[in-house]
Design a protein around this nucleic acid. Structure first.
Length: 476
DNA sequence: TGAAATGTTGGGGCG
DNA sequence: ACGCCCCAACATTTC
C-alpha cells in the first residue's frame, strides 16, 4: 500500500480540501508544510502575514493530531525538501492544491514534471477559487478567447455558468497515520514570530486557523448578513465578514463560504436575498482579482492601463509617505484607518479606499508605495486582491474608478461614521472633539476644539490637492 | 463602491 | 393678491 504526501500551502484546512480528499485514501499519509522564503520572490510576506501563518500552522497541527495524524514542518528549497521527503518515506504519490500567483504557476509546473519523471504520481486540485482563472473567458471572436477586464461582465459570466454550490468535502473523521520517524521542525523554528512582541493587538483581534474561520463565517451569517449591504459601509460597526485572512491562507474556501451563504439566504424569508447577494459579489471581486493577476502577471507592479506609465507621480515624498503610514496626516478618518491597520493588521474596506485615495490622489504618491505598505502590515495581504484594489483606486486598473473620483475623507466620514465612533476609537487625541467637528477638527471654533496638542494639523489642503490631482490626471 | 458646481423647483417672508 | 428674493431640497452636469 502506498504512502502519499499531502503538500499543504495556502489551503490550511481539513474541510473542503480537494487535495486532502484525493490524498487520504492511502495507507500512510504525510501532511507537510514547507517554509521556502526564496519562493516568494519580490513579495516576501510581511510581519503580520508571518504572524498569522505561524498561528495557522500551529492550529492545523492541532487539528491533524485530533484525526490521528500531524503536520510535518520543513524548511528549505521546495524541490529538494519534497524529493528528500519522498525518499525518506517511500512515497509514491503527492497531492497539492494549486496556487495562481505569477512565478508559482511556472514553478509548480516544473516541479510536477520533474516528480512525474521520477515515477511519482502527482495530483493537483483547486481549493482556493470558485473558478480556475482560465475557466472564465470572453470570446471576442469565434476562434479566440480573452480575459475579462470589467467586473460586471466577468461576474455575469460566472453567474451564468453557475456558482459551484455543491456540498463541500466533509472533514474526515480520521486520517491515516504518519510513517514512523518522520522528522519535523517546530513552528517556532521557522522564525515567523516577531522578535519584538508587537503582536498583542493582532492576538486580541484574530483567531487564525480553521476553527476560527468557521466561527467567523457562522457568526457573520447569523448576526450580520441580514443588514450586510448597509452595515458593511460603516467602519465603526463589525458589519463585514472578517474572512479575508482566513480565505487568504485557505483556512476556509470560497465554495464553503458561498454554499453557507446561499443556505442562509434560503432560510431568510424574503428580504435576506439581496444582502447575501451583495456579500457573494465580494467573493466575486476576489475571484476577479485572481483572474486578473493570472492573466496580467506584472499587474502587481505595473499599471494595467498602459497610459499610466508616464503618470506624473511625485518623486520626493519620503516624509509624506511616512506620515501616512504612521497615521499622522491630520485627516482624522485617514489616520484612524492607518492606525487600525498598524494595531490590528486589518483595515475596514471603505477606509482602505479612502486612505488609498488620499495617498494616490491628494498626495500624488505612487500606488505601488501604498500597496507595499499594505502588503507589509495586513494579515490578509494577498497579492491578487492588493494589486487589484490599489490599481482600482489609483485609476490605472481594470474597471477602475474614473480619475475624477476623489474621495473627500471629511464627507466620507460624515456619511459613514456620523458620530465619529470609528475615529474616536483609533485616534484618541480627538476623543473630546464634538461629533459635528470630529472629521474636520481644524474648522471647530477655538472655544470647543477639544483636540489634544499631539494631534497634527492637516498635512495638506483637501480642496487644493484635489484640484492638483485632477490636473495631473487630466494631462496624464 | 464621488465631489463639487450648476440648474431647477417650490415654499415662505415680505413689501 | 402679487411679484420678488432667499434658500433649502433635489436633480443634473461636469470634473
Amino acid at each position: 500500500m502506498s504512502t502519499t504526501i499531502l503538500w499543504l500551502r495556502r489551503d490550511l484546512r481539513l474541510t473542503d480540501n480537494p487535495a486532502l480528499e484525493a490524498a487520504r485514501h492511502c495507507r500512510r499519509l504525510v501532511p507537510v508544510y514547507i517554509h521556502d522564503p526564496a519562493l516568494s520572490g519580490r513579495w516576501a510576506p510581511g510581519a503580520a502575514s508571518n504572524w498569522w501563518l505561524h498561528r495557522s500552522l500551529t492550529a492545523l497541527d492541532r487539528d491533524l493530531r485530533q484525526l490521528g495524524s500531524r503536520l510535518v514542518l520543513r524548511a528549505g528549497s521546495t524541490g529538494e525538501v519534497l524529493r528528500e521527503l519522498i525518499r525518506e518515506c517511500n512515497a509514491t504519490r503527492i497531492c497539492w492544491n494549486r496556487r495562481y500567483e505569477p512565478g508559482l504557476v511556472l514553478a509548480d509546473r516544473e516541479l510536477k514534471l520533474g516528480l512525474q519523471a521520477t515515477g511519482v504520481e502527482v495530483q493537483c486540485s483547486n481549493a482556493s477559487l470558485l473558478f480556475e482563472p482560465w475557466e472564465i473567458a470572453r470570446k471576442p471572436r469565434a476562434d479566440a478567447t480573452a480575459p475579462y477586464k470589467v467586473f460586471t461582465a466577468y461576474w455575469r459570466a460566472c453567474l451564468e455558468r453557475g456558482l459551484p454550490g455543491m456540498e463541500a468535502h466533509p472533514r474526515p473523521a480520521k486520517l491515516p497515520a504518519l510513517p514512523g520517524g518522520v522528522a519535523s521542525l517546530r513552528p517556532t523554528d521557522l522564525g515567523l514570530l516577531p522578535r519584538v512582541r508587537w503582536d498583542a493587538g493582532l492576538q486580541q483581534h484574530w483567531q487564525p486557523g480553521e476553527t476560527g474561520a468557521l466561527a467567523r463565517l457562522n457568526a457573520f451569517l447569523e448576526n450580520n448578513a441580514l443588514d450586510y449591504a448597509g452595515a458593511r459601509e460603516r467602519p465603526a460597526i463589525a458589519g463585514t465578514s472578517g474572512l479575508s485572512p482566513h480565505l487568504h491562507f485557505g483556512e476556509i474556501g470560497p465554495r464553503q463560504v458561498v454554499h453557507a451563504a446561499q443556505w442562509r439566504a434560503h432560510n431568510l424569508a424574503g428580504n435576506g436575498g439581496p444582502q447575501i447577494e451583495a456579500f457573494i459579489r465580494e467573493i466575486g471581486w476576489r475571484e476577479f482579482a485572481h483572474h486578473l493577476l493570472f492573466h496580467f502577471p506584472d499587474s502587481d507592479r505595473e499599471p494595467l492601463n498602459h497610459r499610466f506609465r508616464g503618470f506624473p507621480w511625485r518623486k520626493k515624498y519620503a516624509d509624506d509617505l511616512n506620515a501616512w503610514q504612521r497615521g499622522r496626516t491630520g485627516i482624522p478618518l485617514v489616520d484612524a484607518g492607518m492606525r487600525q491597520l498598524w494595531h490590528s493588521g486589518w483595515m475596514h474596506n471603505r477606509v482602505r479606499m479612502i486612505a488609498a485615495s488620499f495617498l494616490t490622489k491628494n498626495l500624488l504618491i505612487p500606488w505601488q508605495e501604498g500597496a507595499a505598505w499594505f502588503w507589509d502590515t495586513l494579515v490578509d495581504a494577498d497579492l491578487a486582491n492588493n494589486s487589484l484594489g490599489w490599481q482600482w483606486v489609483a485609476g490605472c486598473g481594470a474597471d477602475a474608478a474614473p480619475y475624477f473620483r476623489i474621495f473627500n475623507p471629511v464627507l466620507q466620514g460624515e456619511k459613514f461614521d456620523p458620530e465619529g465612533r470609528y475615529v474616536r476609537r483609533w485616534v484618541p487625541e480627538l476623543s473630546a472633539v464634538p461629533a459635528r467637528y470630529i472629521h474636520k477638527p481644524w474648522s471647530a471654533p477655538p472655544s470647543m476644539q477639544g483636540i489634544r496638542a499631539d494631534y497634527p494639523p492637516p498635512m495638506i489642503d483637501l480642496g487644493r490637492s484635489r484640484e492638483r490631482a485632477l490636473a495631473a490626471y487630466r494631462q496624464g
